[in-house]
Design a protein around this nucleic acid. Sequence first.
DNA 1: ACAATTTGTTAGGTTACCCTTACAATTAAT
DNA 2: ATTAATTGTAAGGGTAACCTAACAAATTGT
Lengths: 142, 142
Amino acid sequence: MTNEKLSSSLEDYLEVIYNYIDKNEKVRAIDISRELSVSRASVTEALKKLADKKLINYGRYDMISMTEYGRTKAIEVIEKHNTLQYFFEEIMGLDSNEAAQTACKIEHIISENVFDRFTDLRNFHQNHPEYTEAFKKHYRDK
Amino acid sequence: MTNEKLSSSLEDYLEVIYNYIDKNEKVRAIDISRELSVSRASVTEALKKLADKKLINYGRYDMISMTEYGRTKAIEVIEKHNTLQYFFEEIMGLDSNEAAQTACKIEHIISENVFDRFTDLRNFHQNHPEYTEAFKKHYRDK
DNA sequence: ACAATTTGTTAGGTTACCCTTACAATTAAT
DNA sequence: ATTAATTGTAAGGGTAACCTAACAAATTGT
């Protein structure tokens, strides 16, 4: 009951919360609201759902903290994000902004399997920078 | 007013309709309903929206046909789909089913820019099969 | 300490999708 | 041609995400 798939939207909330806590900062609803460009009311709603699912601990006016389970889930999403960001930025050569935006959308919809392949691709390019270079040359000279 | 961005869902409907018409078959609501695994009622609703947006022509019990504009839009989506399918199947080496599923989700969320890069990547691999081979070897031997 | 500001929550709406049920229109079978 | 089956539509609901407005609680500045 604690392992249903999270919606894209809740994954985004979780990710933001994790990133704050990871920097040893406390997160307020308003921080999340700014980060995700949603209203404070929407944040309240999302926090309730995350707490329901045992991903975070929180209560009215309490500091938000994460459960172990929430941390695990957050890290999963963030790893997907990083791998995708690498792909779009370092391999595909998109500017880091567009790479991030694209990664943000795709991170929620790929399976473990597809994610593993992206990880392989990243390793491959890190071990063989000449391939990355060859492709970059290809689209530069298009 | 005729150029708002389509939702993922409406893009899916449009794609299915195009594919039927492209095969010179007439599309019925029930065909779409089966293809997309939604109720016939949902199809009616979607068809109304597509007609509102001038992507298809239809009326109660009429044969569904596409406008030129609809055709253009459908082709855009389908090209994204094909390019992504190539990427996931031929480059990433996923089975064609998982490649298709993944392409279906991603086709709705990538920008023109990102799509162009995937096209470049496809060209690159088609011109340099040795790169594809090298990567395949890499993940096979993992 | 207390007024002013900031932040969190509630209540009430909206929109996009999807559903089921029931009925209407069309098509097929005899 | 009439019944039976299939297909299309309307009505009424549900859910997830979002919003605004109003109010409550906490924090800050002096």
